[in-house]
Amino acid sequence: MPVVDVGRVCVKTRGREAGRLCVVVDVIDKNFVLITGPKTLTGVRRRRVNVRHLEPTDLKLDISKGASDKEVEAALRKTKLYTAFKRAARLPIEDVLKPAHERPSLEST
């Protein structure tokens, strides 16, 4: 099972919100978690998702279980992740789609 726990910053990989950053707010059972963008920041609604549709990052916010969108936003502001969330609300993936020899090297990213 992936490391998806409360406060974990993830990227959605499926559906209309695919490629957007979000934060795990609650763990419902071993398959589902409650996430939020929050919507005002990244456009991800507060919703239940299958953990298989999330890609976890190694970033974690200090929030309590079931935190409200406002609390999540406040936590983001504290960590400066706020700007990163605003800027990269949707990850651009054009470079990944290019064939391997056209991609920029790892150092430049």
């Binding site: 890609e55 970033l59 974690k60 504290k78 990163a84 990850l91 993936i93 990213t109």
Partner: peptide
């Protein structure tokens, strides 16, 4: 344009490349 599976693999690849890069991580470490 892309099937959902290809999109997912592309996003995952990107996440592992970029989000984990130094820039964002240092922001978290206060």
């Amino acid at each position: 344009n892309l099937c959902p599976n290809c999109l997912e693999t592309a996003i995952k690849e990107k996440v592992r490349l970029v989000v984990l890069s130094e820039g964002m991580r240092t922001d978290l470490r206060r």
